[in-house]
Write a protein that binds this DNA or RNA. Structure first.
Lengths: 225, 225
DNA sequence: GGGTCTAATCGTCAAGATGACGATTAGCCG
DNA sequence: CGGCTAATCGTCATCTTGACGATTAGACCC
């Protein structure tokens, strides 16, 4: 039996919010297989590299995003025997959430890169099993908004309640009542930390600026119902 | 750069409930490294085998559990460069929940196997990074009881409300009010399906027998608060 | 300086969910 | 039959939620 050799890759579902939509980063493949097709960013894990380090490295290589501002967490492992026609490859996928929308930059293996609205998922096909991975990543993000402070990962370091609400509305593709949302998030345990300052960048009456609080869990949760 | 070779294993966090405790399956290692030490069950993924298939195979080999009755789901991937002293190994861990407590059986690589109360986690050390994996598995199970029907995976095909409550009490290590719990789970959307039959196996007044409903999500959720 | 606009924030109220706990009930066992 | 054990049903005060009205602080225009 022994242990057959595998290649291991780290692939990324990178999500951000454009003006009015949830978008995922996709890159155009510059090498076979699926040359010219769209795929998730990612690449081989190096011989002496931890999985998450590999994911962070790929993220930096393919986007140039400042590493400090990006939330990253493991999504799942994918290893169907035929998922890569070249050889046996297991990929460990990571979910990354970025607050703003930087211009994607082509990496070593990527001829091109762009933000694809997840709404267009229905029509576009990605290479390998990346459709599935992307769908899993989106679902993870949607689900975690309910019971974790993950939504703040889409926000800049200081943000308003309205900006946080916009995250929920775009990720869940729903409308939320501003008054009830405000009551809820300002009442949630350690979610928001007031900075004392205000901003008018959203227009209208000046809004309080908040920082992410130290809570790891959102209680009470924000249910979609 | 290319793609350095990895070995890939599927390891298992198998949880069950004994009379009064949450227990995890551990096996005594029959081979180096950590020969004679306790570890999670698991083994190498074969050359043409899917990850979950490997996990199911290992589970069957090391326990003899009837495959149909066991809930299994992926937990996470672990791949620190030094997690196995022999070579670079990435493991994809799976979480399995079994309703009853069958006698563990030694597998090919395991000299011995037993159910270890998770309470004894604090004192015992497992091989490799299996302490961490086990802790992650337990935490996953605890968390998923809140918002999914996962607790039913610890129950036989037909079970009473009290048996379901016992699952919550043992996994969370708390006491729950029988009356409020009853109201809650019988009111939850598609959680329970009445069979019409009753049983007195728990003593006292006969209890309704239920089957797992078709709901994939528990709504409203069962919060620990 | 005053009107107008926008969005933030505060209030109110009815409906639903929760936690604490009393009361009743259906089999079992002697 | 009386006592025992749980299951199941009720009650009630409290908390949370959803719907929506009212007020407010700046920006902008004249």
């Amino acid at each position: 039996m022994g242990h057959p050799p595998f290649a291991v890759t780290a692939d990324l579902v990178v999500l951000t919010l454009t003006g009015d939509e949830l978008c995922a980063l996709v890159v155009r493949r510059g090498v076979e297989p699926f040359l010219g097709g769209w795929a998730l960013p990612g690449g081989f894990v190096r011989a002496d590299e931890d999985l998450e380090d590999a994911a962070r490295r790929e993220l930096a290589e393919e986007t140039g995003l400042a590493p400090g501002t990006v939330h990253i967490e493991q999504l799942a492992g994918y290893g169907a025997p035929d998922r890569d026609p070249r050889m046996r490859v297991v990929t460990v996928a990571y979910l990354a959430l970025a607050p703003d929308l930087p211009v994607p930059r082509a990496g070593t293996d990527a001829a091109d890169a762009r933000w694809a609205p997840v709404r267009s998922l229905a029509t576009e096909r990605l290479a390998f099993d990346h459709d599935r991975i992307l769908a899993d990543g989106i679902e993870r993000a949607r689900a975690k908004l309910e019971y974790s402070p993950l939504a703040t990962a889409f926000c800049p370091p200081e943000f308003t309640v309205a900006e946080l609400r916009r995250v929920y509305e775009l990720v869940w593709d729903t409308r939320l009542d501003p008054r009830n949302f405000h009551r809820k998030v300002t009442g949630a345990d350690g979610l928001l930390e007031p900075t004392g300052r205000t901003t008018t960048r959203d227009g209208g009456r000046p809004a309080q600026l908040y920082r992410r609080g130290e809570a790891a869990l959102l209680y009470p949760p924000m249910l979609r119902s």
